[in-house]
Design a protein around this nucleic acid. Structure first.
Length: 402
DNA sequence: TCTGGGGTCCTAGGACCC
DNA sequence: TCTGGGGTCCTAGGACCC
């Protein structure tokens, strides 16, 4: 049976949402109409472009590029700080509106949703009608614009929403693939990134159409599973379902670029503790246990190293996870200057699936009580108040995936 | 010159077992 | 002393996404 899929994508999400919020606070300018970006703090070495206005885009400014470059392209660029609390509110408002149209809806990211409306199209209306209705309602009721892709599967809907921006509805039905998708450069295809592009071009594959008409078996031979995926995508094949289950995370991690490079182990461990507290707090909020603790470092010349350790017994204890992380860090750290440090917990399981272990001693119960108490204080008074490593500025990016 | 932070998935090699 | 093949699990690293 033919499916009716929509992909809703907020135009320049962080910048648009910031603009709407500023207007709500009676700002005089709409930053969507001037060369402006949302960016990190350059002084803290987090100076990259998170989102840009259309006028900024016209200067050639790209997302994720250093603000330093962006300023060179446009000297009178206006720069605004990010505020994820606000973004979450607007993201939720959009999601709630979209829920009126189907219960088969997937939050793909903070600013993108897939909707399967196959069984939710009222008599006398088409899939395209619904897309336009959503498009208009979001603009009128929420104050920002979206692109909507209209298709028969997720991949094609996503490709369609990426056509001309902003504020547009595009269709990409199967019979439109040759005319609308195949002429595009192969780099426009979802999953074709920086590294695979030159490899494809070397094979003479310049457009999505070139890839579609290439030999599937040789793509598999050359690129493995990835080769099969992008060959299918180029041919508009995607059988994946819109997944409305709010998925449990498979891993949780926090990392931070340091304001200055450090080679002092004690100082690095302080940061590691703050990151561990953040990660384990989120782990417990999801009611999960981990059995793998990994640590990542990035040296001042941008080399990345990581090590991990598997635990005998799954845990969510800050103390146990921090002790493990410290040991892993010691294996990893050779005394060089460190730019970034991160912790990640992996192999997550629910406590219900967990057998009661003979190691679950009263000592551990005491530790659990401490974690629980600190968590509820964080819940009540805000995260930053209660961290042991209080001097660390914790980014509010925390847990935006929910 | 500058290069964030949150994730998912895949691969290759090695250890270990039968 | 020299030798198989299949399977699972773990680890490090990397590609890609937003």
């Amino acid at each position: 049976m033919e499916r009716k899929i929509l992909h809703v994508d907020v135009n320049n999400a962080f910048l648009s949402w910031t603009a709407v919020e500023m207007l709500k606070q009676s700002a005089e300018i709409d930053i969507r109409t001037i060369p402006a970006i949302i960016g990190g703090d350059e002084e803290k070495r987090k100076g990259i472009v998170l989102a840009k206005s259309m006028p900024a885009k016209n200067y050639g400014i790209k997302t994720a590029e250093p603000i330093y470059f962006a300023k060179q392209k446009c000297p009178n660029l206006q720069i605004y700080q990010s505020n994820f609390k606000v973004y979450r509110q607007y993201s939720n408002a959009l999601y709630n509106l979209l829920c009126e149209y189907t219960n088969k809806i997937e939050r793909f990211s903070i600013d993108e949703c897939f909707l399967d409306i196959t069984n939710f199209i009222p008599k006398g209306k088409t899939q395209l009608d619904i897309a336009y209705e959503i498009h208009n309602r979001v603009k009128q009721e929420l104050g920002f614009t979206v692109n909507i892709g209209v298709a028969q599967n997720k991949l094609l809907a996503k490709m369609a929403s990426d056509f001309e921006k902003p504020d547009k509805v595009h269709t990409l039905y199967e019979n439109e693939i040759p005319s609308k998708m195949w002429p595009l450069p192969v780099s426009d295809l979802f999953m074709v990134g920086r590294k695979s592009l030159p490899k494809l071009e070397k094979l003479g594959i310049k457009t999505i159409g070139d890839l579609a008409s290439s030999d599937k078996q040789s793509m598999i031979k050359l690129f493995g599973k990835f080769g099969e995926t992008i060959w299918n995508y180029a041919n508009g094949i995607d059988l994946s379902e819109v997944n409305s289950e709010p998925e449990q995370p498979k891993c949780i991690g926090n990392s931070a670029t340091l304001p200055k490079d450090l080679n002092n182990l004690e100082k690095i461990e302080e940061v590691l503790l703050a990151l561990t507290e953040q990660t384990t707090y989120r782990l417990r909020k999801h009611n999960l246990l981990t059995s793998t603790v990994g640590v990542q470092i990035r040296t001042k010349d941008f080399k990345n190293y990581s090590h991990q350790k598997t635990l005998q017994t799954p845990t969510n204890s800050t103390k146990i996870i921090y002790e493990t992380a410290k040991n892993v860090l010691k294996e990893l750290f050779k005394g060089e200057f460190i730019r970034l440090i991160g912790i990640k917990v992996d192999k997550l399981t629910s406590p219900e699936a967990q057998q009661i272990s003979i190691f679950d001693t009263p000592k551990n119960e005491k530790q659990q009580k401490i974690d629980k108490t600190l968590d509820s204080l964080k819940e009540k008074y805000g995260y930053n108040v209660v961290t042991r490593a209080g001097q660390m500025q914790i980014d509010d990016m925390m847990d935006f995936k929910e």
